[in-house]
């Protein structure tokens, strides 16, 4: 137990970084997800193609490989970001592909009649998306989006591989000093569980709040 209580500062720091990273990347991934899902259903073939390529590329590469590539390859062409920023960009981009697919599935649950009615009153494509299609499509997939956000939380631990000291890396560091892996990683694991529980609580609340009356 001392292995945990003696290093509260380091754990706290790691936890804050993990939460920070999760919040920032969730926002980024949601924005990207909406944009890419929109591209994938838009009437312009070229843009649809861009959306498809994005999803295919990012879903078919391991996140760790993407992280390493981004952090170590970009500086060779003169582009450098702080480590935290790099990791946040890569994780957002990666989870954005998954969210885009979930959102697209949501959009597909919205009947064609809704889009036709929206167009029939003179809404443009982007207006029908914004006021009619997305509000209903997103509501249909709050639950799966929550699951992706939990996966995102877990995936933030990969940022450790490129040098970000988030919760897992903090635990690792403490373990190097204390050599008590069971206590240290159980503690970190509990923290992840609590965060995941929090996300699913938020998801559940959003789902109730935005339920469509049927």
């Amino acid at each position: 137990m001392d292995a945990l209580t003696g290093h509260l500062g380091e754990f706290g720091h790691g936890l804050v970084t993990t939460v920070h990273m999760t919040v920032v990347t969730t926002i980024g991934a949601l924005l990207l997800g909406v944009i890419v899902a929109t591209l994938r259903i838009c009437p312009v073939p070229l843009l649809r193609g861009v959306g498809t390529v994005y999803v295919e590329v990012l879903q078919n590469l391991p996140l760790l490989a993407l992280l390493v590539l981004f952090v170590f390859a970009l500086p060779t062409i003169g582009i450098t970001f702080p480590l935290f920023t790099s990791a946040a960009i890569v994780i957002s981009a990666y989870e954005g592909a998954y969210l885009a697919e979930a959102i697209r599935a949501g959009i597909n649950t919205v009947g064609v009649g809704q889009a036709e009615a929206a167009r029939a009153i003179g809404l443009t494509f982007s207006q029908s998306l914004r006021y009619v299609i997305l509000p209903q499509g997103l509501r249909a997939v709050i639950q799966p989006m929550g699951t992706i956000c939990i996966a995102l939380l877990m995936n933030t631990s990969l940022a450790a591989a490129v040098g970000v000291v988030e919760l897992t890396q903090a635990a690792n560091n403490v373990n190097l000093v204390e050599a008590q892996p069971i206590a240290v990683f159980t503690g970190a694991g509990l923290a992840y569980m609590l965060l995941a529980l929090l996300i699913s609580r938020i998801t559940g609340a959003l789902e109730r709040r935005f339920a469509i009356v049927r």
Binding site: G111, G122, Q127
Partner: peptide, 28 residues
Amino acid sequence: ARLRADVGMVFQSFNLFGHRTVLDNVTL
């Protein structure tokens, strides 16, 4: 889009926007 605004359409299956109240359907 502007022309469609001038041509109203009423569908067999109503197609009201399910996530909006009746009033919000009409004002959109």
